[in-house]
């Protein structure tokens, strides 16, 4: 599978190093290794969701209960979570660390991903959610740490877009 195991490990190790103890996830192709790593980790609470918006509630509960969390989702899952983000996490000032696979952008060959890919950054901007791009393994750890720091300092969601250059490798 051309999804990068090595770079998925870089992202997972960063989450562990940053004290993330709960990950909510809904599978998509780019996230398969990350989800397996969480599943194989006896010290990680992995919550497999039916729909991504549930993960907002789960992360809200985890935060108020003292556990740092991260959400793994595709950008279409982010789009499906917006009410929870706005009237849950933002209204109640809850830090969310969202790792969003940035499907449907440059290089995307699947036609069904393209509409969401073009919208994702605009929607993040409209929601005033600070975001950064994870596109290289050398900077991923640093950027994830900065996103978590800002989320907790501001008590608001922040997002990292998992980009093709990081998640996908030539077969």
């Amino acid at each position: 599978m051309p999804v990068s195991v090595k770079n998925s490990q870089v992202v997972y190790d960063a989450l562990k190093e940053l004290g993330v103890g709960l990950i909510s996830a809904l599978p998509e192709t780019w996230l398969v290794h990350l989800i397996r790593m969480a599943d194989d980790d006896p010290d990680m609470i992995l919550v497999r969701l039916a729909k991504e918006e549930e993960g907002v509630g789960v992360s809200m509960g985890a935060h108020l209960a003292g556990v740092k969390s991260a959400m793994l989702m595709q950008n279409h899952g982010f789009l499906a979570s917006i009410n929870g983000i706005v009237s849950g996490a933002q209204l109640f000032r809850i830090p969310l660390l969202m790792l969003i696979s940035h499907r449907g952008h440059m290089g995307e060959a699947d036609p069904w991903q393209t509409e969401g890919g073009m919208l994702t950054e605009h929607v993040l901007e409209a929601l005033r959610i600070p975001f950064d791009h994870l596109d290289h393994p050398d900077t991923a750890r640093h950027k994830i740490g900065e996103a978590q720091t800002l989320a907790h300092a501001s008590d608001r969601p922040t997002a990292l877009l998992l980009c093709r250059d990081l998640m996908w490798e030539a077969a």
Binding site: G21, L22, I45, V47, E53, E54, G55, V56, G57, V58, S59, M60, G61, A62, L64, A65, G66, V67, S69, N83, G84, S87, G88, L91, F92
Partner: peptide, 20 residues
Amino acid sequence: YLQHAMGLASSMGLGIALSR
């Protein structure tokens, strides 16, 4: 009291229960 975010009270409860 989860004022708004309709539907997510049960998900919040799940997050708290798993965390604590």
